[in-house]
Design a protein around this nucleic acid. Structure first.
Length: 129
DNA sequence: TTGTTGACCTCTT
DNA sequence: CAAGAGGCCAACA
């Protein structure tokens, strides 16, 4: 298998403190970047893909610094299990996330992704572990 | 230092 | 069928 990419060091460099390995956060950022345009995934899906414990909340925390790190992480493609834009309030503007998704040809209604199951991108399946 | 909060999910009543 | 509580790990006060 190919060696790991330097994204680890890069992510650590931009992390709030880089005090720990942040391996979990790295994975979250990497997976988020791998989300194709016009597709969406859920926090729990990423958490479950990274580990059986599924700390979905940590995925949200990781996304908290998504706009601070580089390359830019498409956090707007990550929503909750219901397909609701729960993180829209953290995009600076409440409609920022919805607009971004609309540009991705994804229909959004009431801060909720339409046909969410259809646009759902499961890392465990697409990445074929 | 401990305690609470948080872009969540799943089980139980 | 609907509502409530618990659990996960990390950062902030």
């Amino acid at each position: 298998m190919p060696a790991k990419k330097p994204a680890v060091e890069k992510a650590r460099s931009v992390l709030p403190s880089g005090r720990k390995d942040n391996n979990f956060f790295e994975q979250v950022y990497e997976v988020a970047r791998l989300i194709p345009r016009g597709r969406v995934t859920s926090y729990g899906a990423i958490a479950a893909f990274l580990g059986p414990k599924g700390s979905a909340r940590m995925v949200g925390w990781a996304m908290n610094g998504a706009g601070k790190i580089k390359p830019k992480v498409p956090a707007h493609r990550v929503v909750n299990r219901q397909g609701m834009l729960s993180g829209s309030a953290h995009f600076g503007s409440p409609t920022r996330m919805a607009e971004l998704l609309k540009k991705e040809k994804i229909k959004v209604k009431n801060n909720q992704v339409v046909e969410f199951a259809k646009h759902f991108w499961d890392p465990a399946v697409e990445l074929e572990i």
